[in-house]
Design a protein around this nucleic acid. Sequence first.
DNA 1: ATAACTATTTATAAGTC
DNA 2: TGACTTATAAATAGTTA
Lengths: 84, 84
Amino acid sequence: MGRKIEIKKSEETSKRQVTFSKRRSTLLKKAKEIAISGDVDVLLVAFSTAQRLSKFCSKNRIEDILQRYIELPIARKFSYVNKP
Amino acid sequence: MGRKIEIKKSEETSKRQVTFSKRRSTLLKKAKEIAISGDVDVLLVAFSTAQRLSKFCSKNRIEDILQRYIELPIARKFSYVNKP
DNA sequence: ATAACTATTTATAAGTC
DNA sequence: TGACTTATAAATAGTTA
């Protein structure tokens, strides 16, 4: 990928957020692609340090599980997930 | 990616499984990478038509949620997830 | 922060064994 | 089923605006 680097946590917050943002869009895209081309159910959730939840679910069954057991419980304990 | 194609379900089972297998390893790798470089918690689950569960969890908290609310309930209802 | 650019590395569809 | 090869497309780290 681009200029060769070691995969590790960047201690610079702004750089880390840029990297996360770029990679998140690719990861979500690939999750959607494998769900379609492989005809599988996929659930992908990322809790970022910037306090946001990124998710992709290919099917309703997984979506239900996510909402009932992950999103709602977290929403009750941590107000940050209510951010837009 | 390679020769240009449209992302859609392949009706040929063997071809679909090859594509899924290749893409799964890349997706798991990228999930691990974003967890490290972005310092985030990541959960990735794929239920394949070949009756297997592929997963990656970066942190224990998500691992617990996955085991308690997704893996165990499914194991009780669908024997196929007990396959190796 | 955010968005484009670009040189380079990765991913991968198709093919072969 | 895999494992390997190859031509090509996609991803991306660093940079610049």
